[in-house]
């Protein structure tokens, strides 16, 4: 479904993503784990169109979407839940969801809104409250709901559990599990590696801008030296 081949992203003279290749198949939950500064967020931002790749190819459903602007990516079926959620805090919850569905025809937009409300019951009571007053967990649900409003073929998520209290982290992983059961295709960047591996089908480990390991999630989770791979202690691969 989503194919990334030899992708390179530079900021000025800085190469943050070096020759990365990975694949997300339809209906799969794939995760990308790795330490701070590994280039995970840059990779997602490039795939979503916020940054232009210097080399490489991104294809979605066999269509070449390399270097497309974010709004075009979204229309092609790729939605991103950004790091730190980035909900529009001056907006009401309802308006946040409506912005997410801005590319949909009006009638479809309202259908999707109803769908989101049933998927996230918490949001239902808060529909006309300003989104700035939501708690971290609610805001994360809103951010995911907002991205789903575009009915994407692939949903990209950047650090969904970042900055959440443990009980809310549980909620986020439950939600990822539910989305997976609903047949969604997800590509998730996450730092809580063990929890993520438990809900993912496959995983990639990224360090210093490169993919250093990949494989079925269960196999990586069981691997003895994951911690070392993850932090680069032995530089080995799993």
């Amino acid at each position: 479904m989503l194919d990334i081949e030899s992708l390179v992203t530079r900021y000025g003279t800085i190469t943050a993503v070096r020759d990365v290749g990975l694949t997300v198949r339809a209906g799969e939950v794939v995760c990308l784990i790795g330490p701070n500064g590994a280039g995970k967020t840059t990779l997602l931002a490039t795939v979503a169109g916020l940054l232009r790749p210097s080399a490489g190819r991104v294809t979605l459903d066999d269509a070449d979407v390399t270097g497309w602007a974010p709004d075009r990516m979204l229309r092609a079926g790729l939605a991103l839940v950004p790091e730190h959620r980035r909900i529009f805090s001056d907006f009401t919850v309802r308006e946040n969801l409506l912005v997410g569905g801005i590319t949909q025809p009006a009638s479809r937009r309202h259908e999707l809104l109803d769908e989101m409300v049933s998927l996230f019951p918490i949001l239902k009571e808060r529909l006309s409250a300003p989104a700035g007053y939501l708690s971290g967990g609610e805001a994360q649900q809103l951010a995911i709901g907002r991205a789903l409003m575009s009915d994407p073929a692939v949903l990209l998520m950047d650090e969904p559990s970042l900055g959440l209290a443990p009980v809310l982290v549980d909620q986020v992983f439950d939600l990822i599990g539910r989305l997976r059961e609903g047949g969604r295709t997800l590509f998730v960047v996450e730092q809580n590696a063990k929890r993520m591996l438990a809900v993912a089908d496959r995983a990639y480990v990224m360090r210093s801008g490169e993919i250093v390991a990949d494989g079925p999630a269960a196999q990586l989770a069981a691997s003895e030296d994951l911690f070392e791979t993850y932090l680069g202690q032995s530089g080995g691969t799993a």
Binding site: L50, A69, P70, D71, L74, A79, F88, I102, S150
Partner: peptide, 9 residues
């Protein structure tokens, strides 16, 4: 940027 991610041109 987030607005662009929502499909706003």
């Amino acid at each position: 940027d987030t607005a662009r991610l929502m499909g706003i041109r």
